[in-house]
Amino acid sequence: MSQVYKRELVFIVTGVVALVMMLDYFFGKNIPGLSGSGGIAGQLQTWALIIQLMAIGLGAINLIQVHYRQISRKTDMAIYSIIFMVFFAFLLLLGLYKLFTGVELYPYTWVFANVYTSLGTTLYAITGFFVFSAAYRAFRARNVDAAILLIGGCFVLLANAPIGEVLWSGFPLIGNWFNNVGQIPGMRAFTVVGALGLLAYGFRALIGKEKGFYSEAS
């Protein structure tokens, strides 16, 4: 009995929240006090957002612990962990100053533009390198699956690239057919079976049969 609040009650809370969300989706407009920003469903969404925002502290504690460990054990990575700690503390102080005074100091703006934003774009573009090597890897495999992948990929690629039409006028025609028709059966199958999988998984999770959510292993 004393353990009820550690497991069963958690599932009841989860189930009630899930039920409210489902009712909101299907009958939202027709049940007073359920939908809209002031309704129960809207309130729960706001609650979830607040919890989500507050969780970042847990992540920060984890990351600081990871780097503190490196420093205290004087590992090869300790110097980089010191760089992390110093830079993090410096920027956090600048940010807190902005938060409490409303004044954004230039170093904060400078780091935001030249480090944070710039590295974000850089990392997004790094996929260019990896997509090419992944494509090479996929196309190198010598079996029927890889051959079909290759045919679909090449025709679509050459339909999108200006050089495709220059090489052969049929590339855009066939490539566009792959894009508009050829890929639809597979993509639709993904969508349908993904949804069915989610329904079954959600059902198992809500009734406490999934290990990933405070269930049997707990």
Partner: peptide, 15 residues
């Protein structure tokens, strides 16, 4: 095979 065709087309679009 239909699935592989879909994956290939998506790949081609993204590259």
């Amino acid at each position: 095979y239909f699935i592989m065709l879909a994956l290939g087309a998506y790949f081609g679009n993204t590259v």
